[in-house]
Simulated scan of single mutants.
Amino acid sequence: MDTPKSKKLEIIIPAFRGHSQNFLMVLDGISEEDAVKRIENRTNHIVWMVGNFLDMRYALGFVLGLKEEFEFKDFFFQGKALDESLNYPALQQLKESFHKISPLVYNRLLEVSDEELDKAFPMGMNIDFFPETVLNFVGMCIGREDYLSGQIGLMRRILGYEGMKYDFDKNLKY
């Protein structure tokens, strides 16, 4: 395992890499047609969930100092609600964005210092037990990725696909 400069991220590094693996495995075999299906017009579709996952990755990169911009942010920025009037990007396009941003964010996670993680990062939550810092934003992003992977996994089963296989790719280094 890669060792981060900040010991505060020792638990984040394997989680981030695990989420990268889960992201790819949970999407394995999902067709473009199924990726935009909703259940009883009450759920978000998989493409929206994937876009939101990527919005988290890009936001994480931004707070860590990266200048990469998510080309599809107008669809997904800050959990923007699903809009059925929009033509969302294809699942394949989103996967390409995933492979673009993920190694960059991963490398920044390895390089970031304690001082950078301790910096204030106002989120407007105003919760007394939750200091609004870069470190806590990192944790929130990781939690959101967990949630979205679970949602995609559930949609996968509802749409008639097999459960996710845990065929980890040891060559994926992010």
Rank of each mutant, 00 (worst) to 15 (best):
L94C: 08
K170Y: 01
F98D: 08
D146H: 12
I152T: 11
L86Y: 06
E111W: 01
W48S: 05
R42I: 05
Y58R: 02
F168K: 07
G51W: 06
G163M: 14
N171E: 13
Q92L: 09
V50Q: 08
S149C: 15
Q78V: 13
N171A: 11
K80N: 12
F121Y: 02
L66C: 03
Q151T: 14
S149D: 14
E132V: 00
L82E: 15
I127K: 11
E84G: 14
F70W: 09
M125E: 03
I142H: 00
L172S: 02
H99F: 09
R157H: 09
G79K: 04
E33V: 12
G51V: 06
F62M: 11
K80Q: 13
E69V: 15
F62I: 07
K67Q: 09
I46T: 10
L54A: 07
Y166A: 09
A90M: 12
K170F: 02
F130V: 03
A120L: 04
N87H: 12
F130N: 01
Y147P: 02
E132L: 03
Y161K: 04
L172W: 06
H99S: 07
V105F: 02
M155N: 09
G124R: 04
S149T: 15
I158G: 07
P103L: 03
F77T: 10
M49T: 07
F75H: 15
D146K: 08
G79T: 03
L27C: 10
S102R: 05
M56G: 13
K80V: 10
A120P: 02
N41D: 15
F98A: 03
R144A: 14
G29T: 10
V63I: 15
A59Q: 14
K67A: 09
M140D: 01
K37Y: 07
Y58M: 04
I127H: 14
K119Q: 07
E71S: 15
F137A: 02
M140I: 01
F70A: 09
L91F: 09
D55R: 01
G163R: 13
L60A: 05
I30C: 04
A90W: 01
F62A: 06
D83K: 12
G29S: 11
S85F: 06
G61C: 13
K37N: 08
E40W: 12
M123A: 10
D167N: 10
P122A: 06
Q93S: 14
D34M: 11
Q151C: 10
L64V: 02
F98S: 04
G124A: 05
M125W: 12
M164Y: 03
G160L: 12
G65N: 00
G153D: 14
N52I: 07
K73Y: 04
E71C: 11
P89T: 08
E145W: 05
K170E: 02
L66Y: 01
S31T: 15
K119W: 06
G29N: 11
F130W: 06
M123R: 10
L27D: 08
D169Q: 12
V134W: 01
F121T: 00
V138E: 02
I142N: 00
E40A: 14
M125P: 05
L135F: 01
S85G: 03
N44F: 12
F129V: 08
P103E: 06
E40R: 13
G79D: 01
E32I: 04
N41Q: 11
D169Y: 15
G51Q: 05
